[in-house]
């Protein structure tokens, strides 16, 4: 029996067109479907693919490209294990398998009319970049738009050439901070939560989108709450062990939710009790 295109477990081939090194362990891959399918891979910001390194394994990776230009598939990958190691070492022309897109997305449509605060830490900027692209492409629909980004050190910042470009937009506020500095850094030093109190947004009319390590999200959610942003207007992206991405293998369960189909983006008030439970 041939695995049909509708078989959600069958990867489609994609070829690596370009590899960009972001940091010592993080790379951005740009992929094209080899038979130039008309629309590449159309997706909503916040969704992810299961990326397969033939013969090695498969991992969930958020899509980091521009949803308005899906012809090229972009994935920013951090090398943390066997598969991601191999993924980061893939050169131009090599073949990967892709299944997806899967999962829920950032509320970029629903946030129209509000201020938007994006708070991300470390590699957490990668799943939020598509949301930022979308918002910038429809800038007139939103109030103030603020990006708050924290990384470990200046060398760990992603998209180093793009950040100053975003900063240069008159209608976008970009604040970057690092936990620890290296020589030559003249920017903010301190955890990303310190960027929240001075940020100028109207808490009662703001949609907040948060992504990063779970501990960072916990601290950030507290700070947003302190500022008065309601939990119903706060969105986070969760991560768990994921294997099938279609709700069959059971690994990504998070309380009653499956992160692969009910997430990875969640409205915070809907998962607040589970989020607060240890080892769930």
């Amino acid at each position: 029996m041939m695995a049909s295109l509708s078989d959600p477990m069958a990867p489609r081939p994609f070829r690596v067109q370009r590899v960009r090194k972001e940091t010592y362990d993080t790379f951005t891959l740009e992929l094209d479907p080899p038979h130039s399918a008309a629309n590449g891979l159309s997706f909503a910001p916040g969704q992810f693919n299961m990326v397969y390194v033939p013969g090695v394994g498969e991992v969930p990776i958020s899509i980091s490209g521009d949803p308005g230009r899906p012809a090229t598939l972009v994935h920013t990958v951090r090398s943390v294990g066997t598969v991601t190691n191999k993924l980061c070492a893939r050169g131009r022309g090599s073949m990967l398998g892709v299944r997806g897109p899967f999962g829920s997305s950032w509320p970029v449509e629903e946030a129209a009319g509000s201020d938007v605060v994006i708070v991300c830490g470390g590699i957490g900027l990668a799943p939020l970049r598509p949301a930022l692209y979308h918002i910038m492409a429809h800038r007139e629909k939103y109030g103030r738009v603020i990006l708050l980004y924290g990384a470990r050190t200046p060398d760990d910042l992603l998209y180093k050439t793009e950040l100053p470009k975003w900063r240069g937009h008159f209608d976008l506020q970009v604040e970057v901070t690092v936990d620890a500095t290296s020589n030559g850094w003249r920017g903010n030093v301190g955890v990303v939560t310190t960027l929240i109190p001075p940020a100028r947004f109207d808490p009662e009319n703001t949609v907040a989108m948060v992504c990063g390590p779970e501990v960072m999200m916990r601290f950030t959610l507290l700070e947003l709450e302190r500022r008065g942003v309601p939990a119903e207007n706060t969105f986070i992206s969760m991560e768990r062990n994921m294997q099938c991405a279609v709700g069959f293998c059971g690994h990504c369960q998070f309380g009653p939710t499956f992160i692969c189909k009910d997430g990875p983006v969640f409205r915070y008030d809907r998962i607040q009790p589970i989020f607060a439970t240890r080892e769930i």
Binding site: D25, S79, G121, G122, R152, D179, P213, F219
Partner: peptide, 17 residues
């Protein structure tokens, strides 16, 4: 203090390497 503790946790470390 909260910020300092958060900083201490060094959350962006890969945890593996």
């Amino acid at each position: 203090l909260q910020a300092a503790r958060f900083q201490l946790l060094d959350v962006y470390g890969s945890g593996v390497r």
